[in-house]
Design a protein around this nucleic acid. Structure first.
Lengths: 255, 255
DNA sequence: CGCTAACTTGAACGCCATCAATGCTTGTGG
DNA sequence: CCACAAGCATTGATGGCGTTCAAGTTAGCG
């Protein structure tokens, strides 16, 4: 059992109950819920309903799940592993988002997929046919609000991504990215002080709008300045928090 | 009556009916609606309901409407003019979006505004207190779907913005921006073949993640290559459509 | 008509892209 | 278990592009 497996297990614990899991941060969180905490969106009833029409599918690391432009026959709900959503354009590919256990994808399009997706790690997911999905959404008015919450989630993420990409220096983008990843792990409830980066360097580079070479240099720069240390390619630790925050400072999480 | 006024009138015709106007592109558009067409989201009943609790407010060009971090007391619905939404961070300011007549803003936050906004042109807007807004939303389950549509709209825009910012060359970003503006005017129903840019150069630069100097050079470059011509700082015409599309090519509108 | 702010232009520098070569890691088959 | 191969990541050198700072120009507004 590798260290990576331990961390993956941490990232996805509480997934042992059967059926799809969708979580999101409620933007209008009120009452006892910790602000900014992620929680399960679906009721037990809804989950079993979905589980009945869902099938489990596996994808190898690097395997393509669907391609931009394909007719959209199904949506997916990640149970385990990380998925990369990307678009291929004239010069190289552009990563729109990384998807984590509990995320749902393949849904926000009409007719055809507007992104390609591939497994960044080995992936286990629920596959839900769109007709079935639609039937359930239609017959369940109560899901409306949940859909809104999930959309807000996606909106926030897209806005943060844009904010990140508006930064001019590579180290700034990388720092903001690391801050986002750390934030994500905290909201998921992971306790380790390392930041876990499941995806390839080249995918991170594509997400940051950089070339792999530039990304590598940015890592090196942060390392040289003793702001971070890279245990291996998938584990980063922040050494100098104040210097770190000085670079990522914009109220990145106030979107 | 200046030419600018004519175009503004074009941009905002059909606003003569009293009451707030919110429009959006239905991502699941079906039936007779032209795909990608914008249409009014609110029913007459909803509009009058909102109008009763809304007040008309005016803002001068350049005037700040609210500031990032302020407690959110009200949302706004633009009747006339253009609003710039931006965030101020360590190095300069970053424009998240330009808002047009029919757009609503000041809503997507909890407690405090997460953006600053200012009038890019003289602005007339409806101001709707948040308590009243919330009361209406709560008492009207039918609005749920409309909110979803509006959110999808915002999501698409944020994703396009990110796609734009992922481009490395300034001329590419500018070309994509112009394509977006043109697309916007077409969906609004404006017939002129010019692209109208109501906002300042510096705001455009901030939206594109560039300095004003770099933006100016990008304009000049497109002009030199006979791809566009700038009648004045607010009116651009595309001369060479094929060359233009070759730069902006990525399926920008397939989000 | 004059003032002010915004925009444009120029020159120098710095950062990132590009291309190519090396090094590391992972997975495969002997 | 080791050897090898293929892909990914890093490193180096060079050039292009955008930033920066400053000066000159235009446009907008009183």
């Amino acid at each position: 059992m590798t260290l990576e497996m331990v961390i993956m297990a941490n990232l996805t614990k509480a997934k042992s109950i059967a059926g799809p899991v969708i979580h999101a941060v409620d933007p209008w969180a009120s009452g006892s819920l910790a602000k900014g905490a992620r929680h399960q969106i679906l009721s037990e009833e809804e989950r079993t309903k979905l589980a009945r029409v869902a099938s489990i599918v596996h994808f190898d690391k690097g395997e393509q799940i669907y391609q931009q432009g394909d007719p959209a026959y199904a949506a997916f709900n990640i149970q385990n592993g990380i998925v990369t959503a990307y678009r291929t354009l004239a010069h190289g590919e552009y990563v729109t988002s990384f998807l984590y256990p509990g995320d749902i994808f393949g849904l926000s399009e009409q007719g055809c997929y507007s992104n390609s997706t591939k497994a960044a790690t080995p992936v286990v997911a629920y596959r839900i046919g769109l007709p079935a999905m639609r039937r359930i959404l239609d017959s369940n008015a109560g899901l409306d609000v949940e859909v809104i919450i999930k959309l807000c989630d996606g909106l926030r993420e897209a806005q943060r991504h844009a904010l990140l990409l508006a930064q001019k220096r590579a180290v700034t983008r990388l720092t903001m990215f690391l801050a986002l990843q750390e934030h994500l792990q905290v909201t998921i409830g992971d306790a380790t002080s390392d930041i876990y980066l499941p995806m390839d360097r080249s995918s991170i580079a594509a997400y940051l709008g950089l070339t792999p070479a530039a990304l590598s240099r940015a890592f090196r720069m942060l390392d040289l300045k003793k702001m971070i240390t890279c245990r291996d390619r998938h584990h980063v630790k922040i050494l100098n928090r104040t210097a770190f925050n000085k670079l990522a400072d914009p109220g990145l999480f106030e979107c």
